[in-house]
Design a binder for these strands. Structure first.
Length: 506
RNA sequence: CGGAGUGUAGCGUAGUCCGGUUAGCGCACCUGCUUUGGGAGCAGGGGGUCGGGAGUUCGAAUCUCUCCACUCCGACCA
């Protein structure tokens, strides 16, 4: 009987190597890199229901830090938190025509309220528990909230009403990706009511500015601010403004949206108020949200082949201490040495973590690099003897030897440098990959190369659709700093109504 | 919903074509000793309804039927 020759292909070997340690390099497969990092760094795991995700403690800590930062911002600007129900009467969704059209295809619907044990012992839905009116799991809360606002708003004295909620929402998506698009996700949704159109517009833009600050100052992600086109705006909004960020693969990610809803929802839910001069008017509304998608944005905006690179302001641990101890005496020595350092850092509100697991130092170096810790402190017997510590920056890989006495001052400074270093790196990456084009041929070449494309658009939705169908690139936004004068539409050749940003998007 | 593919330990897999020892290996896990300044070594150990069910057979991970689940591509959506 002929023996089969075992064949081991190079790709299997390569996979075996990448499975055991590290992550798939970005250049090899960006999507695989992304998933690898999330799973191996312990950010999240797949849930049992398709498209769902478990956010693990390390990943949730990032979200918590983002949440706390933004929560502070909105409270400082007069907003308050509340909580509205997860379940919405099905009929509410249908009140606003565009709104229902936008969400109908991705709603989870509750039809029954009970299970029972079948004759053969299996668990089945009890058909007798069918609901009179089926209930929708919120894909967003405009409709419940406005049904309540109708009760709460009577006069101009009740306005503005500035409420936010931190909640989960469900959108039954066909294709999901961890953090970027999951069936259930966490977000904040602000819903405000105003007496005038101008006030609502001002609120919409003020929030957009907070989103810009959150992205740039905390997440270290540079964003474009601008207006969505009709095709891309929120279902039920008059205008949608957005922040748009470039990821490491040069694709665009919508990182936050702020909507001016005009009187659409007020009319749909009949929310009126008495004005100062005793007239009746519908109120003006806004809504705005950012989600756990921001965690995905951080991963893709800053990550490298070693894994995550977290901006200090949102990193779960800003400084990770890796002790290097050969024996119990060393452990004691190092513990005594770092105790006052850790105390000082904590006094300074710096999040510091000591890794005393019994993995080898080399393992820990790689592990914390994968997990994106901004600063690593190595302390071994040599350092104790020399009264110093080795600091390694995650953003530049730079290794510094610092005197013990300097640490208190130097660490906050280093963290600030890393924060701005990551922002500057992302900014120059975006600059390198933003292209100004004049012809459709140039445009098509630029789409292939990836990145943001700035060019003229005649304002016609049909042009937008045609370009999307031919190239897969969409208009990400009409940036506030557009300069349409003298430009021509890339597709039709007509005079440009707007200068827009085209890109392939997530 | 259409097309293709895959189900063997927590993960990755060999074995399936051609039925025949106790289903093998790597990583991870547990115990002990030696180690620790860039992913440690040795020794020992635990873990399997071979996706489920039915059938063929003396005998099924392997053959047949059936059901289920998942992945990729398309469609849909952002």
């Amino acid at each position: 009987m002929p023996q089969r020759t075992p064949v081991i292909s190079a790709s299997i070997l390569l996979r075996a190597i990448t499975m055991s340690k590290g992550v798939t390099p970005q250049s090899k497969d960006y999507a695989a890199w992304y998933t690898d990092v999330i799973v191996k760094a312990g950010l999240a795991d797949y849930g049992p229901v398709k498209g769902t995700m478990v956010i693990k403690p390390y990943g949730f800590s990032i979200w918590d830090n983002i949440k706390e930062s933004f929560d502070r911002m909105i409270k400082e600007t007069g907003h308050v938190n509340a909580y509205f129900p997860l379940f919405i009467p099905k009929s509410y969704l249908a009140r606003e025509a565009e709104h229902i059209e936008g969400f109908a295809k991705e709603c989870a619907v509750v039809t029954h309220t009970r299970l029972k044990t079948d004759s053969d012992g299996s668990i089945v839905v009890d058909p007798e528990s069918r609901l009179e009116e089926e209930v929708v799991v919120r894909p967003t809360s405009e409709t419940v909230i406005w049904s309540m606002y109708k009760k709460w708003i009577q006069s101009y004295r009740d306005l503005p009403l500035l409420i936010n909620q931190w909640a989960n929402v469900v959108r039954w998506e066909m294709r999901t990706r961890l953090f970027l698009r999951t069936t259930e996700f966490l977000w904040q949704e602000g819903h405000t009511a105003h007496a005038t159109s101008a006030e609502a517009e001002e609120e919409t833009l003020n929030i957009l500015e907070l989103y810009r600050q959150l992205a740039e100052d905390y997440l270290a992600i540079p964003v474009l601010t601008g207006l969505k086109t009709e095709a891309e705006k929120f279902a039920g909004a008059e205008k949608t403004y957005c922040i748009e960020a470039m990821m490491g693969d040069k694709r665009s990610l919508q990182a936050g949206t702020s909507h001016n809803l005009g009187q659409n929802f007020a009319k749909a839910f009949d929310v009126t108020f008495q004005t100062k001069d005793n007239k009746e008017d519908h109120v003006y509304a806004t809504s705005w949200g950012v989600s756990t998608r921001l965690v995905g944005a951080v991963i893709m905006a800053h990550g490298d082949d070693k894994g995550l690179r977290l901006p200090p302001k949102i990193a779960p641990h800003q400084v990770v201490i890796v002790p290097i101890a050969r024996n119990e005496d060393h452990v004691k020595l190092i513990k005594d040495f770092i105790e006052p350092i850790v105390y000082g850092l904590k006094e300074n509100n710096i999040r510091v973590y000591e890794d005393w697991t019994d993995n080898s130092p080399g393992y820990k170096f790689n592990d914390w690099e994968m997990k994106g810790a901004p600063l690593r402190m190595e302390v071994g017997p040599r350092d104790v003897e020399n009264n110093q510590a080795i600091m390694v920056r995650r953003d530049t890989n730079e290794k510094l030897t610092l005197e013990k006495a300097e640490l208190d001052n130097q660490i906050p400074k280093l963290l600030d440098e890393i924060q701005s270093g990551l922002f500057e790196q992302a900014k120059s990456f975006r600059k390198e990959n933003t292209h100004f084009v004049k012809t459709y041929d140039e445009f098509k070449d630029a789409v292939v190369g990836g990145g943001f494309i700035r060019c003229g658009w005649d304002g016609d939705p049909e042009t937008e659709t045609a370009v999307k169908n031919e190239t897969k690139a969409t208009i990400r936004c009409i940036p506030f700093d557009e300069k349409p004068d003298g430009l021509q539409c890339i597709y039709s050749g007509k005079p440009a109504k707007h200068e827009v940003i085209y890109a392939k998007a997530y």
